[in-house]
C-alpha cells in the first residue's frame, strides 16, 4: 500500500502483518497480560469490598460492575458502562488488574474506560448493545479487549478487530453452565476442523465461518486461537469451573456465581482452587465440600431466544 491511512480496518490488517514480527510490542504486550491470567479466575464485583474479597480468595482479576448479570437480567432496562467513581474505587482497592465492560459498539464508553486506567475492556453482550451492526475497532486502543464468542467465526472476527482475549458467551446471570460448555466445545471443534483441513480448503472455511482468512490460516498452523481463550457465563460451582478447564479453556470468568452464593468468600476460594487442580478429582471433592448453596439460577434453555444475551453481537 503506497499511501498511509488512518482507516481502522486497514490499520488492523497492517497490524496483523506486523504481529508476526517479533519486534512489535503492542500486540504481545496486550495479549501478554491475558497470558498472565491463565489458569486463573476473573470475578464480577460491584463494590470495593467485594473486590477485596475476590482478591483475598485468589482471583487474578476483577470485573468492575454496577450490577452483576443476574440483577441486570432481573431489573431490565438499558444496561450501560459503570459509574467512573465505582470503577476508580475498585481500581484503588485492589492490586490485581481491573476489567470493566463497555456496550457492544460503544467506543466512547471504551475511551472513558481507557482514560480511567482500566486494564482490560470487556465489550460485552451483558450490557445493552449500542450498535446493532458494528463492534468497536479495538486496534484504536492501547487498552486490551476481551470479547465473547460462540464459535470460531465470531472469535476470529473479534480478534480481527483487535481483541486480545476471547471468552465464551454462556448465558450470563443464569448460573446454568450449559451454553458456556456449548460454546467452548464449538470453538474447539471448529479449531479441529480447521486444523484437519487441507490448505486448499481454508479459504472456503473462512467464507463459511465468516472469519478473516489470515486468522483461519494461523489457527490451521498452530491448532489454537491466536489469543487466550476463557470460559464465561453461568459458572456457579468449583465443578463447573473444572468442567470447562477439562474441556479445554485456559481460565474462567465467574459473574453472579460468587456474590449470589451463600458464602461468597468460601465459594470464591473454592472456584480458584478448582481452576488450578481441575484435573484432580480427589482435590475437587475436597474443594467442593461445605460451600453452602450456589446461586439459585434459571435454566438457560428455558429463556426465550429474544431474551438471550448471547445472541447480541454477531
Amino acid at each position: 500500500m503506497a499511501t498511509s491511512t488512518t482507516n481502522g480496518t486497514a490499520k488492523g490488517a497492517q497490524r496483523w502483518k506486523e504481529m508476526s514480527k517479533p519486534e512489535v510490542g503492542d500486540w504481545r504486550v496486550k495479549g501478554g497480560l491475558a497470558q498472565m491470567l491463565k489458569g486463573g479466575v476473573i470475578m464480577d464485583v460491584v463494590t470495593p469490598d467485594q473486590a477485596k474479597i475476590a482478591e483475598d480468595a485468589g482471583a487474578v482479576s476483577v470485573m468492575a460492575l454496577e450490577r452483576v448479570p443476574s440483577d441486570i437480567r432481573r431489573d431490565g432496562g438499558v444496561a450501560r458502562m459503570s459509574d467512573p467513581d465505582l470503577i476508580s474505587g475498585i481500581i484503588d482497592a485492589v492490586s490485581i488488574p481491573v476489567m470493566a465492560k463497555a456496550r457492544i459498539g460503544h467506543f466512547v464508553e471504551a475511551q472513558v474506560l481507557e482514560a480511567l486506567g482500566v486494564d482490560y475492556c470487556d465489550e460485552s453482550e451483558v450490557l445493552t448493545p449500542a450498535d446493532d451492526e458494528f463492534h468497536i475497532d479495538k486496534w484504536q486502543f492501547k487498552m486490551p479487549y476481551v470479547c465473547g464468542a460462540r464459535n470460531i467465526g465470531e472469535a476470529l472476527r473479534r480478534i480481527g478487530e483487535g481483541a486480545a482475549m476471547i471468552r465464551t458467551k454462556g448465558e450470563a446471570g443464569t448460573g446454568d453452565v450449559v451454553h458456556a460448555v456449548t460454546h467452548a466445545r464449538q470453538i474447539l471443534a471448529d479449531i479441529r476442523a480447521i486444523q484437519n483441513a487441507p490448505t486448499e480448503e481454508l479459504m472456503s472455511l473462512a467464507r463459511d465461518y465468516q472469519a478473516p482468512y489470515e486468522l483461519v490460516v494461523e489457527v490451521a498452523r498452530t491448532g489454537k486461537l491466536p489469543v487466550v481463550n476463557f470460559a464465561a457465563g453461568g459458572i456457579a460451582t468449583p465443578a463447573d469451573a473444572a468442567l470447562l478447564m477439562q474441556i479445554g479453556v485456559e481460565g474462567v470468568f465467574v459473574g453472579s456465581g460468587i456474590f449470589k452464593s451463600d458464602n461468597p468468600a468460601k465459594m470464591a476460594a473454592a472456584i480458584v482452587k478448582a481452576t488450578t487442580h481441575y484435573n484432580d478429582p480427589d482435590m475437587l471433592a475436597e474443594i467442593s465440600r461445605g460451600l453452602g448453596d450456589a446461586m439459585s439460577g434459571i435454566e438457560a434453555n428455558k429463556i426465550p431466544q429474544e431474551q438471550q444475551l448471547q445472541t447480541r453481537g454477531w
Partner: peptide, 15 residues
C-alpha cells in the same frame, strides 16, 4: 512463572 503475584502467593500458602 508470570501471572498474578497476589494470586500465586495465596495459592502457595493455600497448598
Amino acid at each position: 512463572p508470570g501471572g498474578e503475584s497476589t494470586t500465586i502467593v495465596k495459592l502457595l500458602h493455600m497448598f
